[in-house]
Design a binder for these strands. Structure first.
Lengths: 204, 204
DNA sequence: TACTACCAACAGACTAGTTGGTATAAATTA
DNA sequence: TAATTTATACCAACTAGTCTGTTGGTAGTA
């Protein structure tokens, strides 16, 4: 066996992820990536035949890590309560905690970034991002369906749409945080989403 | 008086606005702008000494037009009902109508686009965008305060945060529309926001 | 153990093309 | 006449991507 290139590959992805989330993928040149990663151009193109291949790897990585976060925190919440409404409220709270530790510069969604740069015109990338969002939505939608069965909602609600709204709230909060340079916005908006859930489902 | 350069200047802004919203400002080259606008490079740099000056003009224009849309539709809604809750619900409906006419490619927020490209690191631009968002928020917050006075909310709510949530919902819906290539998402999410308002304030 | 052959991983100079921006002179218009 | 616009040529800096090599280690063989 030869030298293990996976560490270099990971280092490239790590570096490119941080830079692309901060300043956009188009604005992130390969020269910049290799400089920050402390490698050379030859090494970069050995691992990624083109910049588009790097983009694919970034989307893959982002999908995987965020999906993991979603699942981990859903499971965590499921263990902390037996009531599905409480589970979802706890889940949102855990997501809030997660973001409270992040600095302003590290808040954002790679899909959002790519979408505003038109990098998702490529069908492969677009499909990957779409499918990930749909997966997230269906996971949340399942939980909301459990809630609806237990607590008749004040108004007729569609669980898919309510799941969508969580994602939109988060995406919107990211955008506003980046515009206003104020990470607290994520906390406030997720708090609002919890209030929405309670006002819809909490009896009394 | 010499030839009126404001038409050319406007044409540049129009073209650059469309291109920047579609593919990002960094990815929009000056060559591309002048080609689409049907002018020459000399003419471009006569009106905008640098690309950054174009960015300032774009943010200015976007702030102004969106602020106008907000105010127009708030006034329109105010005329269609005397009840503040109904006014806000009608307003959100008008915003929905507005977006139903747009094609997918034309949905997006220039502030969001700039934020994900780190173009708002420039303090001048960041201040302009922030102040515009704060203005939008306070306009909506005023209306929500009226509602709270009339209809005691189910839970203690902060009007500023509820106004924030409208903006975040819209921003998030833009992002998700761009990722999923599905303009209907804006409709669905604003529908959810209306449901939230009703569940919070509607008596019974 | 020593020799040879081999290979993935990496280096860095290099190419071809693009970028924002400049320069300048002539033409057009109010 | 003065402001505006065209046209074209140009620049240094930067871009993604290619090139030819070098390296450290692996594997087979004798």
């Amino acid at each position: 066996m030869a030298k293990d290139g996976s560490t270099t590959r990971d280092k490239i992805i790590d570096t490119a992820m941080e830079l692309s989330l901060r300043q956009g993928h188009v604005a992130t040149s390969i020269d910049e990536v290799i400089q920050h990663a402390g490698i050379t151009k030859g090494s970069f193109f050995y691992h990624f035949p083109s910049k588009k291949d790097l983009a694919v790897a970034l989307i893959e990585r982002f999908s995987a890590t965020e999906m993991q976060i979603l699942q981990d925190n859903l499971e965590k919440a499921n263990k902390l309560s037996k009531d599905p409404l409480q589970q979802l409220l706890i889940f949102v709270g855990l997501i809030q905690d997660l973001h409270s530790q992040l600095e302003e510069g590290h808040i954002g969604c790679l899909f959002a970034s790519f979408s505003y740069e038109n990098q998702l015109q490529d069908e492969e990338l677009q499909a990957m991002a779409s499918e990930t969002l749909i997966e997230w939505k269906s996971k949340l939608s399942e939980k909301i369906q459990e809630i609806i069965k237990l607590y008749p909602p004040r108004q007729p609600v569609n669980p898919d749409d309510m799941a969508d709204m969580f994602l939109a709230t988060l995406e919107g909060a990211y955008v506003m945080t980046r515009i206003m340079h104020n990470p607290e916005i994520v906390q406030l908006n997720l708090e609002q989403y919890k209030t929405y859930l309670e006002s819809q489902f909490k009896p009394g």
